[in-house]
Simulated scan of single mutants.
Amino acid sequence: MAEPIRPPRLKAGDRVAVVATSQSLSAVYPRVYQAGLRTLRETFGLEVVEYPSVSFDPEYSYRHPEARAQDLNDAFADPGIAAIISQIGGSDSIRLLPHLDVESAVRTPKVLMGYSDTATQLLTYARAGLVTFNGPAVMAGFAQLPNFPHLEAHIRSVLFEPTPEYSYAPYPDWVNDYPNWSRQAGHEVGVLRPSTGWRWLQGESPARGRLLGGCVEVLQFLKGTRFWPEPDEWANRILFLETSEEKPPVSFIEYWLRNSGVAGMLDGLSALLVGRPRDYTDDESAELDTVIVQVLAEFGREDLLVVSNLDFGHTDPQWVMPNNVLAELDPTARTFRLLEPAVA
């Protein structure tokens, strides 16, 4: 692909748009929502601009995907907005895609970040050349940040204070889930678990490629549509995949990868990264690793570098993974790093 289009880096005082392009839960779990806004304001010094979709009635939001898309179009068009951050995910944001003004967004690049269902938008803009960011959402990530001292430094390193290269490292602790959002202060998380590190499943040579990926179930929504990348768009890519809180069975990942292999998607990949799966037992995680290696062998990709149990996706804290940014994995040194800044 051509040189990616990087948005300007963020700084204190920047105005950030909060949008609800999937479902709006600000009124359902107000304490969690306000905790996320508080992190943006007090920790990062950003000025929050709440766009109309964050307060849509759920029924109106569902019936009017074009109204949710308009928030994205308006935020990209506003020269005073430096970043757009998703309130939270959902399951139907694919309905927004026909209504997005992608060409205008390319002319006015800015940080766009979220994960889970937001992957539909992240991938769509990334295909047009923008660097987009798979990372914390307001209610799932930023709200919980006070529990994870390393997360603030990571976000700053990727979005605020970029260096020519950036090395990822495992967070020392992680949580699988949150206490009931209806009965908590807003920032609370589940039991902290010690990191068990990354798992290098196969591949002996270093690999380079531009990152591209997201939530595997959400990416499945896009397959077969005009919004799904052609096979050659996956060439020289490092594909990253993660599973949602719905805990898809290992067989779903098996079928997804096999379908991708038949479609030619796996042929040109440089590497495959797999996020720590939420709600999986240790045995299920081990089974997932085994199945991934098995399916890749069916398509002659025993050479493909594969690393699993990485710190992105639906467990916390999660990394920011920038689509379209050049990265490198070294199985001997056991390193994963960005080779260029994600922001300008």
Rank of each mutant, 00 (worst) to 15 (best):
G197Y: 07
E59A: 14
R38S: 12
Y115M: 06
L241I: 08
S308I: 03
V320Y: 13
Q220W: 10
E233Y: 08
H99G: 03
G261V: 01
N147M: 03
A333W: 11
A27L: 04
L10Q: 03
L130V: 01
E328T: 07
F299I: 10
V320W: 02
T39L: 03
A82Q: 11
G261S: 04
N176L: 13
L241T: 10
L130M: 15
S157L: 09
P331L: 08
G203A: 13
Q23N: 13
E50P: 02
N324D: 09
L272G: 05
A342E: 03
P229D: 01
S116E: 01
P30S: 09
S244K: 04
L288A: 11
E242T: 07
D78M: 11
V102A: 11
N134P: 02
S195Y: 00
S195W: 03
R156H: 06
L100I: 14
A207Y: 02
W181V: 05
G275R: 15
V320E: 10
E328N: 04
P172I: 05
A140S: 11
A67D: 12
P322K: 05
G141K: 01
M265P: 00
E233P: 04
W198F: 03
V306Y: 03
A342V: 01
P146Y: 01
V250R: 07
F160K: 06
K247Y: 08
R301Q: 08
F160T: 00
R199A: 15
A20T: 11
Y125F: 15
R9L: 14
G313V: 00
V54H: 12
V158S: 06
L130H: 02
L222W: 04
E188I: 06
H187T: 05
A27Y: 06
G275K: 12
D177P: 01
E50T: 01
W198Y: 08
D303F: 08
P194K: 01
G209Y: 07
A77R: 04
S182A: 10
R95G: 00
V291Y: 06
V293C: 12
R301T: 08
N176G: 03
A2V: 03
G89V: 03
D303S: 08
D14C: 15
L266W: 01
L10G: 15
P170R: 14
T196S: 15
D101T: 06
L257A: 09
S86P: 00
N180T: 04
T108I: 00
L239S: 00
G214R: 12
C215S: 14
Y62H: 07
V295N: 12
R193F: 02
G36I: 02
Y60E: 00
L130I: 05
L272C: 13
Y125W: 11
R210S: 09
I81Y: 06
V262K: 04
G190V: 08
